[in-house]
C-alpha cells in the first residue's frame, strides 16, 4: 500500500473513474483492453485514484488486465489505488498478487 502514497509520475494510459463494478464492467472491459493494446511502452499504467466503488467484477477486470498485459509482454501496473480498491484487495488477500512484493503469497 506504499504505492498509493508514493508519487507516481508515470502518465496513466487509463484512469478509471467512479464505479468500477458490475454496472460499469461491460463498458470498462473494452477500454482496458484498448489501453493495453495501444500502450506503446512496455508499461501500461492504470490509475485507480478516482474509483469510488469496486466489486468482484472490477477486481476480475484488474486480474484480466494484468494477464492480458503479460500475454503482450507489457507490464500492466495499477497506481494510486483508492480506498475502496485497497479494501477489496485486502479482503480478498490479493495484496501480493497486485504487487506488494513483500507480502507475496500470503496475507500473513
Amino acid at each position: 500500500m506504499a504505492e498509493a502514497t508514493s508519487p507516481d509520475l508515470a502518465v496513466p494510459a487509463l484512469c478509471i473513474l467512479g464505479d468500477f463494478t458490475i454496472f460499469a464492467a461491460a463498458d470498462l472491459k473494452p477500454k482496458i483492453i484498448e489501453a493495453i493494446n495501444q500502450g506503446e511502452t512496455d508499461e501500461v499504467v492504470i490509475d485507480l485514484a478516482d474509483v469510488s466503488e469496486i466489486d468482484s467484477a472490477g477486481l476480475q477486470l484488474m486480474v484480466m488486465a494484468m494477464r492480458e498485459g503479460a500475454a503482450q509482454s507489457k507490464n500492466v501496473r495499477f497506481t494510486r489505488h483508492s480506498e475502496p480498491v485497497l479494501n477489496l484487495i485486502d479482503l480478498f488477500g490479493l495484496s501480493g498478487f497486485f504487487g506488494t512484493p513483500a507480502l507475496a503469497g500470503s496475507t500473513h
Binding site: A26, K29, I33, M64, R67
Partner: peptide, 25 residues
C-alpha cells in the same frame, strides 16, 4: 484467518465476459 482467492477460472481477455463471476475462495 486466511483467505486464498482463486483466480484460475478467469479466462483470457477475449473470452472473458466482464459480467460473469469467475472467483473462488
Amino acid at each position: 484467518v486466511n483467505i486464498v482467492t482463486l483466480l484460475d477460472e478467469i479466462p483470457r481477455a477475449a473470452e472473458m465476459d466482464p459480467e460473469d463471476c469467475y472467483l473462488g475462495f
